[in-house]
């Protein structure tokens, strides 16, 4: 396998929920808690998990929208967390973000042309007489026409707006694109188009994707490797085929048993979890999934298990596999 493009090590992001009178935090939300994984050059890394599990927070830390509480992000050999603000902005330009909601991610006061040209202009990537041709080229790449340049976002459909968002992300010629649930706000018929567009662009521009989603079928369609998150913790990482065929963590098993299937001959046992997702505020020391786990045993509530390699790059955080 090729070199890792991104190495995320012990990444943490805590949000302060409440403070006392002196501004000291009394209640902390652990959105991302000690997460470590790599993204290799040229792959699509899928990150799945339910709402609020911290997957978007990881994406936003990568593109410099959030500062990590601790931990390191090494991108292209450079530790982003060690840089000052100006330098970090410069390096983070190579990481772009495609937003979930195409209706909120485009400035309603700017034309499509200005939206796509802006990253090129402010970063002075091209002489000003070549910007327009570049914008036209990008529009064509994402399946829009040149004359769309003078229109405003409200004149477009959701799918078209998402294409504009993709063109904007491509404008700075990034190495990594964080796709934050790029299709979950779209119509199912449009989802496939946008996913195929993303695959095509990946080959054309030599991109690497961090694909954040909660739609398991979507992730299966597009990813090379998949990470499963639960309440700020990474529970399991494996290649797509390995993970979908042989999920090891009980949480992953329960999650995947919920994928609807059209194959009537295949018998499936639906694992129904009891209770709700616990609050990410003060979740306790043990395994985050302990309170709802159907395979929990004594000791699960005491310490959170480390991610353990069980062979072939398949890593899982669960005490069931401690003996292996």
């Amino acid at each position: 396998m090729s070199e890792p493009l991104v190495q995320i090590k012990n990444l943490k992001k805590y949000f302060t929920v409440e403070t006392d009178l002196l501004g000291r935090p009394t209640s902390v939300l652990k959105a991302v808690d000690d997460v470590t994984f790599d993204i290799y050059n040229g792959e699509t890394f899928g990150l799945v998990g339910e709402s609020g599990c911290g997957k978007t927070t990881i994406g936003k830390m990568l593109v410099n929208l959030y500062r990590p509480t601790s931990g390191t992000i090494i991108f292209n050999g450079q530790d982003l967390t060690a840089l000052n603000d100006t330098k970090r902005r410069e390096y983070c330009r190579d990481i772009q973000l495609i937003f979930q909601d195409p209706y909120a991610s485009l400035n309603p006061r700017m034309t499509i042309g200005d939206i796509i040209a802006e990253p090129i202009r402010i970063n002075k990537l091209l002489p000003s007489n070549k910007v327009e041709a570049r914008v036209n080229y990008l529009l064509n790449c994402v399946g829009l026409a040149n004359h769309h340049r003078n229109r405003y976002p409200h004149e477009f459909s959701g799918g078209q707006r998402q294409r504009v968002g993709i063109a904007r992300a491509l404008a700075v010629q990034p190495k990594l694109i964080v796709c934050d649930e790029p299709v979950s706000a779209l119509d199912v018929s449009i989802q496939a188009q946008v996913l195929n567009l993303l695959s095509d662009l990946k080959d054309e521009f030599g991109l690497t994707y961090l694909f954040i989603a909660h739609g398991l079928n979507v992730v299966k369609h597009i990813s090379d490797r998949v990470g499963v998150m639960y309440l700020g913790k990474l529970m399991e990482i494996a290649t797509k085929d390995e993970l979908y065929e042989n999920p090891l963590n009980p949480y992953t098993q329960a999650l995947f048993s919920a994928i609807p299937t059209t194959d009537v001959t295949r018998k499936k046992e639906r694992i129904i979890l009891k209770g709700d997702v616990p609050s990410p505020i003060d979740p306790g020391k043990g395994c985050r999934f302990f309170s709802r786990c159907f395979k929990a045993f004594e000791g699960c509530g005491e310490t959170f298990p480390e991610l353990k390699d069980v062979g072939g790059g398949h890593r899982v955080a669960c005490r069931l596999y401690d003996g292996i």
Binding site: L65, Q96, F99, N107, E118, P119, I122, G165
Partner: peptide, 26 residues
Amino acid sequence: ENDYVQAAKVVGNKDVRIVFKHIVPN
């Protein structure tokens, strides 16, 4: 907090430009 303001930050806009080009017009 709108996504397009965050998007402006991600593509490398400086704070002053974000305020006067992306927020104030809106």
